[in-house]
Design a protein around this nucleic acid. Structure first.
Length: 908
RNA sequence: GGGCGCUUAGCUCAGCUGGUUAGAGCGCUUGUUUUACACACAAGAGGCCGGGGGUUCGACUCCCUCAGCGCCCACCA
C-alpha cells in the first residue's frame, strides 16, 4: 500500500481541529462504562470564566491531559471533569472597570440587579472563549459534565454547606479585625493580601516620657496604651501607672502595660497600640479588655473618632497629623530610609487597611466532626489527611509547606462585600440585624437577605464533589442529596475521592488546603488521593511573565505557529514537579521539529512500497536490527510505563523522543532502507511505530492520532481501534522473538548492562561511527567507495554477518580478519578498544594524506617548541603575571594533547 | 525571623533509592541536495557536576559547612 498524498511537513493547523471534533463527538472523553479497571478521575482546576488561556492553564491542561489519556488507554473508566470559576472579585473588578469606561457609571449607580446582569452577560459571552481554547490544547475532558461554580447545583451546594456549618457551630458572625480593601470595598482573606517592600518615613514621636515609633501616625490619634516588655529596665518604674500625655488631639490619659509582645530591641522598646487597625494590637486589646475605637472607616477616611481630622483620607490625614505633631514639638526624628512591608490587595494592588468589622467566619479550631473515631477540628482533620499519608503530595517537600500553613491557620473570613458570587443565605429581620434566620429561602416579607457574598474559594473548596452531584431535588437537604449520590452507579460513588488533583504550587493554600478542609468535613472523606503540583512558567531569563514586561508568550500563538503537540511538549519536557521552568520560542520550535520527524518516519513507512506489512506479530525475526529495535521497544514500554506511573512525565517523554528519533529513525529506518532483505524482514517498522506513538500519544495526541489513522487506512497495521486515543496501552512482551528485558545491573559484573543483542548492536554502531569519523577526518567523500580491513577477534562473526549493513551506511566495503593485515602500506588506521580499522587508499591519495598529516604535525611541533621556550625563560617566569603564565601552560598542554591525538589517529 | 528550592557543556535543563566512559535540546565547528524529513543527515569540539570538608571500595547523587541566586510564610510597632 502506498500513499503519495502525504505532505512533506506535518501541518498541525490543518488537522488538529477536525481530529478533536471526531474525538469529542465519539464520546471517548466520557468515562468508558465497559472498562472494568479501577476508575480514574481528575477535577480540572476551573479557569476564570472571563479569562483567556494563558501559559498557566496550558501547563495544567497538558499535564492533566497526559494523565487522563494514559489512564484511558490503560483501560480505566476515566473522568476528567472541566469547568469554569466565577472568580468573584476578579470578575467584578473587570466589569466595574469596563462599566466606568463605557458609561461612566459606578456599580452603585447602576444598582445590584442591573450590575449583576452585566456581569452575567459578560461571563456568558467570554466563557466560550476559554472553552474553545481548552479544546485547542487537545484537552480530553468530558464536556458533557462541564460545570460552573455559579451554576444551579453548585450554588445550592454552597448554600447547603453554609447552612450545615452554621448549624454545627462552625460558621459564626463576629466583630473582628479583618483585611479591608478600600477600593474593592470588601474584606480579604489573609492570603489575599500581598506584601510589597517599599521605603517609607518612620516617625519617632515623643509620647510623654517615652519615644514611640510608627510608620502610620494617622492611626495613632487615640492611642493611649503603652506596651513595654516586662523585663525592660528602662520602663520598669512606669508599669501599671497612668499619666497625662500631650498628644495629637489634646491631652490623653495613657497607661503603661507590660507584655512580652513588645520587642526591647526594636526602636525605643515602647509602643502604643491601635487596636482597631493592627492585628497584633487587636489581640492585645482583647487580652486586656481595652477599648477598640475605629479611626479609619471602610471608605479609607478618618472617622468621627479622628476629631478635627475626621473626613480626611488616610494620606491627607497623615500629612495634617505630622504637621500638628511638629507644631507641638512632638517629633523627635524622622527616618527616611525605613523599609516597610506595605500590604496590598492581591486583585487591585490598593493598600489594605486592617480594620474592625462584622463578618462571617469559619472556625477552624472548634471540634467539627468525627474523624478516625474522634471529634476533631477542621484544622486537625486537614492536617491528619496529609500526615496519615491518605493524601500524597508530589513532590513530597510540599508536605512541610502545607503543615506550616495549616498549623498557623486562623479562622477564615468568608464574607465579601461584593455582589458577584454566592449570596450568603442569611436573612435579617428588617431594622434588626441581630435577629436573623439562616436558610436558602426567605423566611418572610419582613426579612432581607445579607447583601454580602461568599469568598470565591468557599465554592472552589467544594469543587471535587459538588461537581459530581446530580441535580438537587427541591426538598433535598445536604445529607439526603449526598446520600442519594453515594449509591452505586452515581458519579460521586464512582469517582470520589478523585484520583489526582493537579495544579500549580502557587495555589496550594488558596485552594488545595481549603478543599481538604471542606471536603473532609462535608463528606468525611478526602477530596483526592494525590496532589501533583507543577511549577510556574518563566521567561528565558527566569523572570515571571507579565504584561508590563512584555515577555509573555501566548500559548494560542504558539499553537497556531507550531501546533498544539509541540506546544504541549515544550511545557512538559525538561521540567520536574514543583519546579519552575523557562519557556522560549526556540524550545517550542525544537519540539515542532521532533513532531515533524515522527511525521516523516510515518511518511517513509507509508510511501515505501518495498516492504510487506507485518500481518501479525511473529517469531521469525532473525535480523540483528529487527531483534535490536524490538528489544529497545520492549525496554521503552517498560521504562516509560513506570515513569508514567510515578508521574515522571518528563522522563517518559524524553525516552520516547530518544527512541523515535535516535533509534527508530536514525538506525532502524536507515538500515531498512539499504538492506536488500527478504520480504517480511526488516518490516517491523509499522508495528514498532504504532507501539511508540501509543506511548507518546498522551503527550502529542494530534500527530499520533493522524499517523494512526493513516497507517490504518494504508492497512499497514492490523487494528480494530477506531482511535489511537481509545486503543490499548502497549504491554511488555517477548513477541517478535524479542530478547529478555534489560535488567538492573548484574551483581557479578556491573558492566554487563543490556541484552546481548543491544550490546552487539552497540558495537556495530561504534564501528560504523568510527568509519564515518575517518571519512570526515580524512575528507573522504561518500561518493568514493573504499575498502577496509577490520581487525577483531571478539566481533569477527558479528561484523561478518553485518557486512552489508556496514557497507550500506558507510560506503566502505569491509573485510573482517582476526588480526591486523600484514601489508600495511597505503592504509590509514583507527583504533578502538575492541577492533582496528584499516582503510586502504590509493597510493596518491595516501601520499596526500601523509602530507596533510606532516604539515599539521610540523605546525604543532613548532608551536610547542615556542611555548616550551617561553615557559623555561626565567625572565618571563619572574615578571609575567601569574594568570598569564598559567594560560601559557594550559596552551602547551592543549597543544601536546592535540599532537598526541593526531599522531595516534594517523598512525599507519 | 521561620521554611523550601536551585547552582551540572556557551544557553535552557534532565540525571530515580550512591556503581558503565555524566546526558539531551538549542547554539557552535566541519562536511553532505545519501530516493522520509534542511523543521534534515553525518562527524566533531565543549564539563575539577558552585567552593571546602566528611561517610564509602566508590559521591553529580548521602551528611556537614560556606558562598551566590530564587521562592514561600510570618511581620516589627
Amino acid at each position: 500500500m502506498t500513499d503519495k498524498n502525504i505532505p512533506k511537513a506535518y501541518e498541525p493547523n490543518k488537522v488538529e481541529d477536525s481530529i478533536y471534533k471526531k474525538w469529542e463527538s465519539s464520546g471517548l472523553f466520557e468515562p468508558n462504562k465497559k472498562a472494568d479497571n479501577k476508575p480514574f478521575s481528575i477535577s480540572m482546576p476551573p479557569p476564570n470564566a472571563t479569562g483567556t488561556l494563558h501559559l498557566g492553564h496550558a501547563v495544567m491542561l497538558a499535564i492533566e491531559d497526559i494523565m487522563a489519556r494514559y489512564a484511558r488507554m490503560k483501560g480505566r473508566p476515566t473522568l476528567w471533569l472541566p469547568g469554569t470559576d466565577h472568580a468573584a472579585i476578579a470578575t467584578e473588578n473587570k466589569v466595574e472597570k469596563d462599566l466606568l469606561k463605557k458609561s461612566k457609571k459606578t456599580k452603585q449607580e447602576l444598582g445590584r440587579e442591573k450590575f449583576l446582569k452585566e456581569v452575567n452577560d459578560f461571563v456568558a459571552s467570554s466563557q466560550n472563549t476559554i472553552k474553545k481554547q481548552m479544546r485547542k490544547m487537545g484537552a480530553s475532558c468530558d464536556w458533557s459534565r462541564e460545570r460552573y461554580t455559579l451554576d444551579e447545583g453548585l450554588s445550592r451546594c454552597v448554600q447547603e454547606v453554609f447552612i450545615k456549618m452554621y448549624n454545627d457551630g462552625l460558621i459564626y458572625r463576629g466583630h473582628r479585625i479583618v483585611n479591608w480593601c478600600t477600593r474593592c470595598q470588601s474584606t480579604l482573606a489573609d492570603d489575599e493580601v500581598e506584601y510589597k517592600e517599599q521605603y517609607a518615613k518612620f516617625y519617632y514621636l515623643k509620647y510623654g516620657p517615652v519615644t514611640i515609633g510608627t510608620a502610620r501616625p494617622e492611626t495613632k490619634v487615640l492611642d493611649k496604651v503603652i506596651i513595654v516588655h516586662p523585663d525592660d529596665k528602662r520602663y520598669k518604674e512606669y508599669i501599671g501607672k497612668s499619666l497625662n500625655v500631650p498628644w495629637i488631639d489634646g491631652t490623653v490619659k495613657a497607661i503603661f502595660v507590660a507584655d512580652k509582645a513588645a520587642d526591647m530591641d526594636f526602636g525605643s522598646g515602647a509602643m502604643t497600640i491601635t487596636p482597631a487597625h493592627s492585628f497584633l494590637d487587636f489581640d492585645l486589646a482583647k487580652k486586656y479588655g481595652f477599648e477598640i475605637k475605629q479611626i479609619i472607616g471602610p471608605d479609607g477616611k478618618l472617622t468621627e473618632n479622628g476629631g478635627k481630622f475626621a473626613g480626611m483620607d488616610v494620606r491627607e490625614a497623615r500629612e495634617a497629623i505630622v504637621k500638628e505633631l511638629d507644631k507641638k514639638g512632638l517629633i523627635e526624628k524622622i527616618d527616611e530610609n525605613y523599609v516597610h512591608n506595605l500590604s496590598v490587595c492581591y486583585r487591585c494592588d490598593t493598600p489594605v487597611e486592617p480594620l474592625v468589622s462584622e463578618q462571617w467566619f469559619v472556625s477552624v479550631d472548634k471540634p467539627a466532626r468525627e474523624w478516625r473515631n474522634k471529634k476533631q477540628s477542621l484544622k486537625k482533620i486537614a492536617l491528619d489527611a496529609v500526615k496519615s499519608g491518605d493524601i500524597e503530595i508530589v513532590p513530597k517537600r510540599f508536605n512541610k509547606t502545607y503543615f506550616n500553613w495549616m498549623d498557623s491557620l486562623h479562622d477564615w473570613c468568608i464574607s465579601r462585600q461584593i455582589w458577584f458570587g454566592h449570596r450568603i443565605p442569611v436573612w435579617y429581620r428588617k431594622n434588626d440585624k441581630s435577629d436573623y434566620v439562616v436558610s436558602i429561602k426567605s423566611p418572610g416579607k419582613d426579612y432581607e437577605q445579607d447583601p454580602d457574598t461568599l469568598d470565591t474559594w468557599f465554592s472552589s473548596a467544594l469543587w471535587t464533589f459538588s461537581t459530581l452531584l446530580d441535580k438537587p431535588k427541591k426538598d433535598d437537604t445536604l445529607d439526603s442529596w449526598i446520600e442519594r449520590n453515594r449509591k452505586k452507579g452515581k458519579d460521586l460513588a464512582n469517582f470520589h475521592p478523585t484520583t489526582v488533583m493537579e495544579t500549580g504550587y502557587d495555589i496550594l493554600f488558596f485552594w488545595i488546603a481549603r478543599m481538604i478542609l471542606m471536603t473532609t468535613y462535608v463528606l468525611g472523606e478526602i477530596p483526592f488521593k494525590t496532589v501533583y503540583l507543577h511549577g510556574l512558567i518563566r521567561d528565558k531569563q527566569g523572570r515571571k511573565m507579565s504584561k508590563s514586561l512584555g515577555n509573555g508568550i501566548d500559548p494560542l500563538d504558539m499553537i497556531e505557529k507550531y501546533g498544539a503537540d509541540a506546544t504541549r511538549l515544550s511545557l512538559v519536557l525538561g521540567t520536574t514537579a514543583g519546579n519552575d521552568s523557562r519557556l522560549y520560542e526556540e524550545k517550542i520550535a525544537g519540539y515542532r521539529n521532533f513532531i515533524n520527524k515522527i511525521w516523516n518516519i510515518a511518511r517513509f513507512i507509508l510511501t515505501s512500497d518495498a516492504k510487506t506489512p507485518v500481518q501479525t506479530p511473529h517469531g521469525d525475526v532473525s535480523l540483528l536490527a529487527d531483534k535490536w529495535i524490538e528489544s529497545r521497544l520492549q525496554n521503552l514500554i517498560s521504562e516509560t510505563t513506570e515513569h508514567y506511573e510515578k508521574y515522571e512525565y518528563s522522563l517518559a517523554g524524553e525516552k520516547i523522543y530518544d527512541f523515535l528519533w535516535h533509534d527508530l529513525a536514525d538506525w532502524y529506518v536507515e538500515i531498512s532502507k539499504c538492506t536488500d532483505a527478504p520480504a517480511g524482514r526488516l518490516s517491523l517498522a509499522p508495528d514498532i511505530l504504532l507501539q511508540a506513538i501509543k506511548l507518546l500519544h498522551p503527550f502529542t495526541p494530534f500527530v499520533t492520532e493522524e499517523i494512526f489513522q493513516r497507517l490504518k487506512k494504508g492497512k499497514l497495521i492490523k487494528t480494530d481501534d477506531k482511535f489511537l486515543a481509545s486503543s490499548e496501552w502497549p504491554k511488555v512482551s517477548t513477541r517478535h522473538g524479542a530478547y529478555p528485558q534489560k535488567t538492573k545491573p548484574c551483581t557479578e559484573d556491573r558492566r554487563s548492562y543490556g541484552t546481548r543483542v543491544e550490546q552487539d548492536f552497540k558495537v556495530l554502531q561504534d564501528l560504523i561511527t568510527a568509519i564515518r569519523d575517518m571519512r570526515a577526518k580524512y575528507s573522504l567523500p561518500y561518493s568514493e567507495k573504499l575498502d577496509a580491513v577490520i581487525a577483531t577477534r571478539k566481533h569477527k562473526n558479528l561484523f561478518q554477518e553485518q557486512e552489508l549493513v556496514v557497507e550500506a551506511l558507510t560506503k566502505v566495503r569491509i573485510q573482517v580478519l582476526p588480526s591486523k593485515p600484514v601489508e600495511k602500506q597505503n592504509f590509514i588506521r583507527s583504533h578502538a578498544s575492541e577492533f582496528d580499522i584499516f582503510i586502504k587508499l590509493s597510493a596518491n591519495h595516501f601520499k596526500k594524506q601523509k602530507q596533510n598529516l606532516s604539515i599539521e604535525k610540523e605546525q604543532l611541533d613548532q608551536y610547542i617548541k615556542i611555548l616550551e621556550k617561553k615557559l623555561s625563560n626565567k625572565n618571563f617566569l619572574q615578571n609575567a603575571p601569574e594568570n598569564v603564565i598559567k594560560q601559557e601552560q594550559e596552551k602547551l598542554q592543549d597543544a601536546e594533547k592535540k599532537l598526541k591525538k593526531l599522531v595516534h589517529s594517523h598512525q599507519t
